[in-house]
């Protein structure tokens, strides 16, 4: 009987220890991907099976774990559009159309494989909890579960380079474990200011066979940004932060 009690106690202690370790790894991944408060530029490229491309350039500011805003600089048809995310709340402002409208994480303001939650990505630790950790040869595989139902992907499988503490691949899955898309992190780059991270995120999806999307990061730098920049009223004026 005492052996069973000891065994149960060990099991109870071991399971949360895994979770704690996993969440610590996730926190380090988030920290290595971007500073706490920063600005950056991203080029989003959708490539069709025949090689045709459509490109977007986005200026982005982020503060803390749950505030991010983006401004489309090009193409001309999308110029001036801004997006804002505060935790689980997302809005899109289109200059011609008028007021900011609420959008949902699964919609896509640009079309193609990237959806709104990919473009307005918060810290992974803000939206997910680590449920399982697997050690592989050079990488650690984290199994992540969404904290709420408003998160775009119910589950993630994140392969983390143990040495660099950065993701190399993330699979995004539904609640029923159906694969929606895969993100590949490529081309390590030193952006200065101690920021060393992949400069390219390539994406494919079984839902879009033959299509690929790329997110290329440029000019990432730490910057203090006032909270008021992350409000609906400021969305039409985001350009003034550039």
């Amino acid at each position: 009987m005492s052996k069973i009690i000891v065994l149960l106690t060990v099991l109870l202690l071991v399971t949360p220890a895994y979770a704690v370790d996993g969440n610590e790894i996730l926190a380090r991944v988030d920290k290595n991907l971007s500073p706490d408060s920063y600005e950056m530029y991203r080029k989003l490229v959708n490539v069709e099976p025949d090689g045709r491309k459509k490109e977007f350039i986005l200026f982005t500011v982020k503060k803390g774990r749950d505030k991010i805003a983006g401004l489309f600089i090009s193409p001309a048809s999308d110029k001036g559009r801004t997006t804002l995310r505060l935790g689980e709340n997302m809005w899109l402002y289109i200059p011609n159309v008028g007021k900011p409208v609420r959008i949902t994480s699964l919609q896509s303001v640009i079309g193609g494989v990237f959806n709104n939650s990919d473009i307005l990505q918060l810290d992974y630790g803000e939206e997910y909890t680590v449920t399982k950790v697997e050690d592989q040869e050079k990488e650690t595989l984290l199994h992540l579960k969404a904290k709420t139902r408003t998160v775009a992907y119910d589950q993630l499988r994140m392969w983390v380079d143990r040495e660099k503490m950065l993701p190399t691949k993330i699979e995004c899955l539904t609640e029923a474990a159906m694969l929606i898309k895969t993100l590949y992190f490529k081309d390590m780059k030193d952006f200065g200011g101690g920021i060393v991270r992949p400069a390219v995120v390539e994406t494919d999806s079984p839902l879009y066979k033959g299509y690929r999307s790329y997110m290329i990061f440029a000019k990432i730098k730490a910057r203090e940004i006032p909270d008021e920049a992350f409000t609906l009223n400021f969305m039409p004026r985001l350009e003034s932060l550039r």
């Binding site: 530029y41 490539v47 090689g51 045709r52 200026f59 600089i73 400069a199 290329i216 440029a218 000019k219």
Partner: peptide
Amino acid sequence: SMAEVTPTFDLSEIEKEV
């Protein structure tokens, strides 16, 4: 536009664009 092929990215070009 059909002739496009797999993209290559030059960060310095992007930095000029922005």
